[in-house]
Each structure stands twice: as C-alpha cells, then as structure tokens.
Amino acid sequence: MTTNLPCPDSPNCVSTQATDDGHAIAPFRYRKSRAEAKEALKDIIRTLPRAKLVEEDESSLRYEFTSLLFRFVDDVEFLFDDHAKTIHFRSASRTGYSDLGVNRRRMEEIRSLVEGKL
C-alpha cells in the first residue's frame, strides 16, 4: 500500500505529496515510536464517525470514510516515514468532482486531534 498516488485534477483530494496549492497539505509529525504513533492515530480515528480501517501493515493504514447523507466513500491512506518521523497521507473522494473541502477539513480535524499525542 502506498500514498504516493497523485491527486486527480479535480478538487476532491488532498495529499502531503502534492505540490500544487489546491491539493497540498502538510504532513503530521510524530515523536513516539512508529508503532506507538500508529496505535495513537488509530485510537483517534476510532472516535470519528463512519470511519472503517480496511488495510494495515507495518508502516501504513488505509481507511474508508462514508458520508452520512449520500453514503459517498472517501479513501484515506497514511504512510509512516520512521526516518523522518513524518506521517504522509492522501485523502480523496472516490466519486464526484468537488467535495466542497470535506477531505481537507477532515485531515485538519485529525491534525488538531493528534496534536501532542503522537
């Protein structure tokens, strides 16, 4: 699993590895061990509504977030870079053109929840 897939041209994706302003977002940083940071992130995401962990390996997590009203699914992938103590991520809508900023807001909400806990 990897988060290095580029965002599409549509404004329904954010990625720490994007270079354009419309899609770029800052990664999360962690101080704990990768395993501890991963468990802390999982604990935080577990508190969010309609989030389902669908894949996990030693250095990555993949979630599906489902919208309440229309049941749209967004894919969110986290990749832990232990050398740089950085969590790269990509959050993208599976369908549609615009997400009205939902993916960016979700990732900034997660950023505020993980602050000081990783």
Rank of each mutant, 00 (worst) to 15 (best):
M1I: 10
T2V: 05
T2N: 12
T3A: 11
N4Q: 15
N4Y: 10
L5H: 09
L5R: 10
P6V: 14
C7Q: 13
P8I: 12
D9G: 10
S10L: 13
S10N: 13
S10F: 15
P11M: 09
P11V: 04
N12A: 15
C13I: 13
C13V: 09
V14S: 08
V14L: 07
V14N: 08
T16S: 15
Q17K: 15
A18T: 07
T19P: 04
D20L: 09
D20W: 04
D21I: 11
D21C: 05
G22S: 08
H23P: 11
H23A: 12
A24Q: 13
A26I: 05
A26F: 06
A26S: 14
A26V: 10
A26Y: 06
P27K: 11
R29K: 15
R29W: 03
Y30R: 02
R31V: 10
R31F: 06
R31S: 14
K32E: 15
K32M: 15
S33N: 06
S33I: 07
S33Y: 08
R34L: 15
R34C: 15
E36G: 04
A37E: 06
A37S: 11
A37R: 05
E39S: 14
E39F: 05
E39N: 12
E39I: 13
A40P: 02
A40E: 09
A40R: 13
L41G: 06
K42N: 07
I44P: 12
I45N: 03
I45M: 11
I45W: 02
I45Q: 03
I45T: 06
R46Y: 13
R46L: 12
R46I: 01
T47E: 13
L48S: 02
P49K: 07
R50H: 05
R50E: 03
K52Q: 08
L53E: 02
V54D: 04
E58P: 10
S60L: 04
S60P: 07
Y63T: 01
F65M: 02
T66K: 04
S67T: 14
S67N: 01
L68G: 08
L69I: 04
L69V: 04
L69R: 01
F70K: 00
F70V: 00
F70G: 00
R71T: 00
F72A: 00
V73E: 00
V73I: 10
V73Q: 01
D75S: 05
D75P: 10
D75K: 00
D75V: 05
V76F: 00
V76H: 00
E77M: 05
E77S: 12
E77H: 09
L79R: 08
L79M: 10
F80P: 12
F80V: 06
F80I: 12
D81F: 08
H83L: 07
A84W: 06
K85V: 01
K85I: 01
H88N: 10
F89S: 13
F89C: 09
F89I: 07
F89D: 14
R90L: 12
S91K: 04
A92D: 11
S93V: 00
T95I: 15
G96R: 02
Y97K: 05
Y97L: 11
D99N: 01
D99Q: 00
L100C: 00
G101W: 02
N103M: 02
R104K: 09
R105A: 12
R106P: 02
M107D: 09
M107R: 03
E108T: 05
E108D: 09
E109Q: 11
R111C: 08
S112D: 10
L113R: 15
L113W: 11
L113A: 11
V114W: 04
E115W: 04
G116W: 04
L118A: 06
L118K: 03
